[in-house]
Structure formats: structure tokens, C-alpha cells
């Protein structure tokens, strides 16, 4: 489904060099991949480059979805193709209701696929059922998007969007950071509920704890812009025990706390 080859990327107009330095990754349908790495290894950059964030430019390599390069595809069309990014820091949009936002998002996708838009009634039904499913406080849905939401509520709201949009490839960018145990459970449940042979996940995380709730098929360690090791769930356990020291030759070692 997703094929990333020799991906090099850097921040647009930045003096600094590349953040991603030749990343290779293949994700098949139905797989859950975890990408772990210390701070500054390029995890968030990778997540954002997949989604087409314009702040980054790809200098070398390719990203292919179903065999076609998406490097020139703008973010909204990548979304239409089924890529979803759960943001580490979701933006606040004053005056825009979550309902309105999701309706517009779903409409745009249906339009791009030549499908019929949901009526207000149909969409409301869908929305309300998903709100109940991810157990987000319905009162929050009367507010502006993400405005006045706590960190945990923002993440839960990302899961709501994930559940509504049902993407083919969901990228979770440190969705677990700053979450308490309950919220972690919500995120895990949302992901596990959506697990299917047609849907893939890339879970980007510094910590191991989310992976106690979602068992990944494949675990990668990202260090200095490359995937330096790939393995099964046991690799995550090793990181939990040993930290990232082994992967950081000559660099400052940093432990990976297991967290709650």
C-alpha cells in the first residue's frame, strides 16, 4: 500500500540540513507499524511529510501510495486518497464547530470520489454515534474546534475524526504524549476498533506504553533520519528496557521511560 524509498527531507528555507536521510519503509494493507525514536530523530517530520505539510520539502527519494508517487499531491488530495494524520498539536479554529468541520471534510472526500454527500440528517446520525463511540464529552462539540480543549480532549477529538473519516492509512503522531491512562485506553480502543485488513496504521511514538494497548505487527526504530532497526513487538520491549542508547552511536544517549 505505502512504499517509502530513500526519503530525504528538510524544512523549507531552513539553514539546517536534512532531517530525514534516506528512510525506507513498506507498509502493507492491514498492518500496524510502530515507529519509535528519541527526540529529534525525525519522527514527527516523517509523519508530516507523509501528509504533505508544506513546511517540509522532499529533496530525494519517493513516497508511493498504491504504486503512484504522491510527492506532488497536495495535502487535501492525499486525504482524499485515504491518508489521515492524527496531529500531535491539533490547531484551534475559533468559530468553527467540530460538526461543521467534519461535514466539510467528509463532503470534500465524497465529492472527490464522485460519491453522494451525506444529508445533514444522515451526517448528524453518524456524528452522534461516533461521539458516543469515542466517549468524547458532547458539550465540547458545541464549542469551537479544539478551543479550550484539554490536551487529552484534543487527542480524543482526533480519534473522533479518525473514526468518522475511516482512512486507509492512519498516521498517529505522538498521539499518546501527555495522555493519562484513561485517554490512552480511548486512543487504543479507537485504533483497535478500526483494525481491518484494508486499513493500515503508522504509530509514531517516543514511548512504549501505547504499544501495550495496541500490538503492532512491525516495530521500527528511527534514529538520525533513518530506520536503523526493524523487528516485531519484542523490539519495543527492548527499547523499554534498554532505551535508545544502542541506536545512537556517538550521540547523547537517552532513556525511553515506559511511562504509565
Amino acid at each position: 500500500m505505502l512504499e517509502v524509498t530513500n526519503l530525504h527531507a528538510r524544512v523549507v528555507d531552513a539553514e539546517d540540513g536534512e532531517i530525514l536521510k534516506g528512510l525506507n519503509l513498506t507498509v502493507k494493507s492491514g498492518e500496524i507499524h510502530a515507529i519509535m525514536g528519541p527526540n529529534g530523530s525525525g519522527k514527527s517530520t516523517f509523519a508530516n511529510v507523509l501528509a504533505g505539510r508544506p513546511d517540509y520539502e522532499v529533496t530525494e527519494g519517493d513516497i508511493k501510495l498504491d504504486g503512484e508517487s504522491i510527492l506532488e499531491t497536495p495535502p487535501n488530495e492525499r486525504a482524499h486518497k485515504g491518508i489521515f494524520l492524527a496531529f500531535q498539536y491539533p490547531a484551534e479554529i475559533p468559530g468553527v464547530r467540530p460538526w461543521q468541520f467534519m461535514k466539510a471534510a467528509l463532503d470534500s472526500r465524497n465529492e472527490a470520489h464522485g460519491e453522494k454527500k451525506l444529508s445533514v440528517r444522515e451526517f448528524s446520525k453518524l456524528f452522534d454515534s461516533k461521539v458516543a463511540e469515542v466517549k468524547i464529552n458532547p458539550d465540547l462539540m458545541k464549542r469551537s474546534l479544539n478551543e479550550g480543549f484539554s490536551g487529552g480532549e484534543k487527542k480524543r477529538n482526533e480519534m473522533l475524526q479518525l473514526a468518522i473519516l475511516e482512512p486507509r492509512l492512519a498516521v498517529l503522531d505522538e498521539t499518546d504524549s501527555g495522555l493519562d491512562v484513561d485517554a490512552m485506553g480511548i486512543v487504543a480502543n479507537a485504533v483497535n476498533a478500526l483494525r481491518s485488513p484494508e486499513r493500515s496504521f503508522i504509530i509514531v511514538t517516543h514511548y512504549v506504553r501505547l504499544l501495550h494497548h495496541i500490538t503492532p505487527d512491525i516495530v521500527h526504530v528511527l534514529a538520525d533520519g533513518r530506520l536503523v532497526e526493524t523487528g516485531g513487538p519484542e523490539l519495543a520491549e527492548e527499547v523499554e528496557r534498554e532505551g535508545y542508547k544502542r541506536f545512537l552511536s556517538g550521540q547523547e544517549a537517552e532513556p525511553a521511560p515506559a511511562g504509565a
Binding site: A51, G52, R53, P54, D55, P74, P75, N76, R78, A79, H80, F84, L85, F87, Y89, P90, A91, E92, I93, F101, M102, A104, A105, L106, S108, R109, A112, Q161, L165
Partner: peptide, 15 residues
């Protein structure tokens, strides 16, 4: 902000 725009566009909404 670019953050706001990218957020909306990532969900499929045009520029």
C-alpha cells in the same frame, strides 16, 4: 496560521 490551514487541508478541505 499555516497550522490551521494544514489541519483543515489534511482532512480533505481545499485551500
Amino acid at each position: 496560521s499555516d497550522d490551521q490551514l494544514f489541519y483543515l487541508m489534511q482532512r480533505g478541505i481545499s485551500d
